[in-house]
Design a binder for these strands. Structure first.
Lengths: 205, 205
DNA sequence: TGATGTGAATAACTTCACAGCG
DNA sequence: CGCTGTGAAGTTATTCACATCA
């Protein structure tokens, strides 16, 4: 009964959600699969299939109630409550992500910072104290943080990952250009900016 | 004859390449599909299929010559020469990317900066002058820049994209949380950090 | 009537398995 | 002999097409 849902379906749900929130702000009350799907360049049948994994949320002959569908997708993605997130590696990229308002807007709050550089440990940035990477276990357990964002140098990535996992982290957003070894039950999404750039040039004339 | 290559194949080629460069640095001269594929958690047959789109590069019974395969993949991905890149939107994220050494390491040089904020225009950062966004056409044509990285606010993303395309840009790395409308012949990769984060929580217990 | 929900059909991608060749 | 290269088989994802029902 409990089938595995394609990761792409999960990503598209997050994309539908973003569009739906935009529509709700514009006071749109009802939308068809046709019009919602075209906003993210997907097909209407794809959108309906994506939802069909989780139930029936539309009204035949009418479409989907925007507010209701927002609530349903938030529930599916477990986005109902705000999530605390840890950021590991407070270098250039880490600092940029800290300043990036995008996460906050989607209900994520970076609420713990870690680094291994003694020059940084103890300093405050954006109102948050940078903790010693050695203290992840203590801090993450106390704060009940389950999500980590890794922006450390590639060479440290696996060690940091292992440490986070023993500290109770269950999901990782990885910005390092490394494939990370993880046990069953841990989820990783990797954002590999260099690969995205390299794979672009293939399409140049 | 000329079939379409899956984008995932192109991305994996970039990943193989990264591993191969690492191996070359370690003085490894020959590698099997088995051992190269496992480095990026792909299957050996997948790796061979990926290469088979482009030709025969291995030696039966032996494996692949590391240096030769690097050259082949660089040629496929058109990475033989250094590429100049423009960065549009010199805010927090843009500045972080500018400081990020990762691009340079892979043969990309950010060599033009643009913003629409008159307080920023004319200032120098990392030795580069921030140009007025209105001057993209002039600068990009002169510098023969074909790749743009967009780190502007989401609301400006489509306008900036249109402007880049009329200025001769052929490939875009998009960091804004927007689906961008583009004509045939232009390639976009989107790095949507908020979506990556939102799609992670689904897997939390 | 009109858009959803969904099996069936199709297409795309991945793995298998082995022939081919250094 | 061993590993590549590759058709065939298997699997997964997407689209089609229409029955269904507000």
């Amino acid at each position: 009964m409990k089938q595995v849902i394609p990761h792409d379906t999960i990503k598209r749900l997050a994309l539908y959600l973003r569009s739906l929130r935009y529509l709700a702000k514009k006071k749109v009350e009802v939308i068809s699969s046709q019009r919602l799907a075209e906003r993210i360049y997907a097909s209407p049948s794809q959108m309906r299939k994506d939802l069909a994994y989780f139930g029936e949320f539309g009204i035949r002959g009418v479409g989907y109630n925007v507010k209701k569908l927002i609530a349903e997708i938030e529930s599916i993605l477990k986005l109902k409550k705000k999530r605390k997130v840890a950021l590991i590696g407070i270098g250039k990229l880490g600092t940029a992500l800290l300043a990036y308002s995008g996460f906050e807007k989607f209900g994520f709050r970076i609420s713990a910072l870690f680094d291994n550089n003694s020059g940084k440990i103890g300093k405050k940035i954006f109102g948050l104290k940078i903790e010693d990477i050695a203290r992840t276990k203590e801090v993450l357990k106390r704060e009940r943080i389950k999500i980590g964002i890794i922006t450390v140098p590639a060479a440290d990535a696996q060690e940091v990952t292992d440490r986070l996992i023993t500290s109770g982290i269950k999901a990782i957003l990885n910005f390092t250009p490394r494939y990370l070894n993880i046990p069953e039950g841990i989820m990783i999404n990797t954002v590999d900016m260099a690969i995205e750039l390299e794979s672009l040039t293939y399409y140049l004339p």
